[in-house]
Design a protein around this nucleic acid. Structure first.
Lengths: 158, 158
DNA sequence: TTGCACTATGTCGAAAATCGTATTATAGTA
DNA sequence: TACTATAATACGATTTTCGACATAGTGCAA
């Protein structure tokens, strides 16, 4: 069975898509009718475009929680060096770990970059000792504490 | 003039707040009427709570763009070591830089952790040579290329 | 070029959600 | 207990969303 693709004719983002992104990146609940008026198309078009953008994974309309306000007082970045043949297993183990909210494959001395959110330094040390260091295949780790976020932009489309 | 504070009686997040966060973190456009029904309160209550949470900086309802789909094919993390007395100036210079979407003060060998988004390796090298390395007060940098995002969770509230 | 198939956009009315005002309830405090 | 300020509710007017259908536009192949 042939899968049907949305936006099969025009796979790239066009001006309307960027208009939608610019409108929604600062306020995910902006009414489609307003965006439509600004861009000179109908609400239906905006509705379909937004659905497509989301289906493609180009746009996510989400609520971002301030970790500190939600009790996650300790945030750290952990670099992980992995034995090459165990990479998939290590990634799988890390992916299943609730404390970890981000895993990136990177260049350099460490193959993996992760970000962890925990409520306290005690919880961080428990995480390191009881979970991270028990995963087979990890040869080295580097913990970088996040002391203060100085700049954070989700709306980077200009 | 005395400033009036929202949520002055109950500054912490309560069950309704967490219910709202859980509902919205995966879909920022979920109707307040639905959340209200689920939590057993009125739509107006949800509306007011969401406004308060946003005003407090506890919750942001935003559109997150996939950088690659928007043409930012190269993403890198750059660690920056800074002369202590120049830290504020360096941070100010980095903050004004459009390529940088995240700056974090960290522990360790490097005081600053940044994330940059550019369209190509050429643009990255131009950024490094023409912008970053021209900022006075930077003693050392470490560029880590992001090869692949393996896990990314914005909805980390359980 | 013309016609075909498919996708995108537009039209529009019903249903749902939002918004603002006024009212009631609740918690903290004197 | 009464007072004050905040929080929640009630509710109708307005706006938005949604879905079914119609129209327009594009790529492709005869």
């Amino acid at each position: 069975m042939e899968e049907t693709f949305r936006r099969s004719l025009y796979p790239d983002l066009d001006d309307i898509d960027y208009g939608i992104i610019r409108a929604l990146q600062g306020n995910a609940r902006l009414p489609f009718t307003q965006i439509a008026k600004d861009l000179g198309v109908t609400e239906k078009t905006i509705r379909m475009r937004v659905q497509q953008l989301q289906d493609e994974g180009a746009l996510s309309l989400v609520g971002i929680v301030n970790p500190v306000k939600a009790g996650f007082h300790v945030q750290a970045m952990i670099q992980v060096a992995v034995d090459a043949e165990k990479l998939d297993d290590v990634v799988a183990a890390l992916t299943d770990t609730v404390e970890i909210r981000l895993i990136v494959l990177t260049s350099g001395e460490y193959q993996l970059f992760t970000q962890v959110l925990v409520t306290s330094n005690e919880e961080l040390s428990q995480f390191l000792l009881k979970k991270l260091h028990k995963i087979p295949g990890i040869s080295k780790t580097n913990v970088i504490n996040e002391l203060k976020i100085l700049k954070s932009k989700y709306n980077f489309i200009r």
